Simulated assay, not measured.
Amino acid sequence: MTDAIPFEVPWARTHQFDPPAIFDSLRESRPLAKMTYPDGHVGWIATSHEMVRKVLGDPRFSHSTEIGHFPVTHQGELVPNHPQIPGMFIHMDPPDHTRYRRLLMGEFTARRASRLASRVEAVAAEQVDVLREHGAPADLVRDFAGPLVLRMLSELVGLPYEEREEYAHAPTLLHDPDAKPDEVAAAYERASSFFAEVVERKRKEPGDDLLGRLVAEGKLTTEELCNIVTLLLFAGYETTESALSVGVFALLHHADQWAAIRADPSKLDRAVEELLRYLTVNQYHTYRTASEDIELNGETVRKGDTVTVSLPAANRDPAKFACPAELNIDRDTSGHVAFGFGIHQCLGQNLARVELRAGLSTLLRAFPDLRLAVASDEVPLRLKGSVFAVKSLPVSW
């Protein structure tokens, strides 16, 4: 197995919860394997836990839009190099990345996230009322997970949830591989225009939220502020919504694990980490570009080569996690890379954990007999795209 595998092969997920089987053979024989991208560029894919952390932790691998060779979009379009977008720090290297991230780190600490726990629980309880009002069967994505995550993210950032029609569709379409490019562009433009309007409101009345505090500090332009809001929304909404929805699906499918948490709620924190590892909903489009020739695993990654890292494959590495294909809420999950690794590790991971914990605990208390309203293989899945998700999750109680 020395030939480059095609870009499409590793994304051919065929099972509800498991990454493609090719990852198992690649990890064993070629944890750093050559891969051909749609434009003919021959780069690499890393599948072992060790290799993924090496790539993501090495400052010689860049995530800059100025020098990177980027994979295609969900719609199959090639992404050209382009100058840095002010505020869009996810696609920057230090020192620019560091400067922006430092402005936000205080908003997403574990301490600050823990202080939000009671508010998250209150919002979760309100969404339970929505489920009850609808009656069984209900869609857990539409009536619980989606609103819970979007409401909390909107409150934290400073976006008016009652005006969510202006911005909520954009991240959903961006992560949908079946969305039409013109629809994505239109939704993105609508959201961007709305963010600029909100920034102007904050200049008159800042408010006690992230955007209000950034406006009051006066260090960033309107363009930077709008792009930071865009990044936080696009990175934090669909991903956490999916982690919660697919997490509930996995627990209801593995009834013994759901029963174990119900019998002993102290297992919930470990269960959240195991679900993050086991599912790893951030499944594609994590990549870096070599800024110089780099020797790695006996191979020479040339300057300009793209290395895609598979977070799902790393989290199923038997060298790191025993019996990794099993969902086991009692396992030690330390070191999982569901939120990435290195300087670009997910900024909002502490908030995501609080939301996942509150969502699951609220459902356990409200619906101890929660169950799927359809057969497990009838739950509609989104297997492609950057985020693994359930399109809807019909449940009864």
Results as ranks from 00 to 15, higher is better:
33 A>P: 00
300 T>F: 08
269 D>N: 11
79 V>I: 14
317 D>N: 10
61 F>H: 02
392 S>D: 12
318 P>L: 00
139 D>Y: 08
287 Y>N: 12
251 L>G: 07
24 D>F: 06
193 S>C: 13
80 P>C: 06
269 D>C: 02
39 D>G: 09
168 A>W: 07
277 R>E: 02
289 T>H: 02
295 E>G: 13
324 P>K: 00
96 D>Y: 14
173 L>V: 09
103 L>A: 15
102 R>P: 09
161 Y>K: 10
237 Y>V: 08
301 V>T: 07
58 D>F: 02
330 D>G: 13
108 F>Q: 03
289 T>L: 01
12 A>P: 01
39 D>L: 01
73 T>N: 00
283 Q>W: 03
115 R>V: 10
111 R>G: 02
286 T>W: 12
116 L>D: 04
201 R>A: 07
52 V>E: 10
294 I>W: 07
40 G>D: 13
190 R>S: 15
387 V>L: 14
85 I>R: 02
228 I>D: 01
195 F>Y: 15
148 L>S: 08
209 D>R: 08
256 D>M: 12
69 H>K: 14
38 P>G: 02
58 D>S: 07
389 A>C: 02
240 T>F: 12
220 L>K: 05
253 H>K: 13
71 P>L: 06
380 P>I: 01
122 A>P: 03
359 G>W: 03
326 E>T: 11
36 T>F: 04
385 G>A: 10
245 S>E: 05
288 R>A: 11
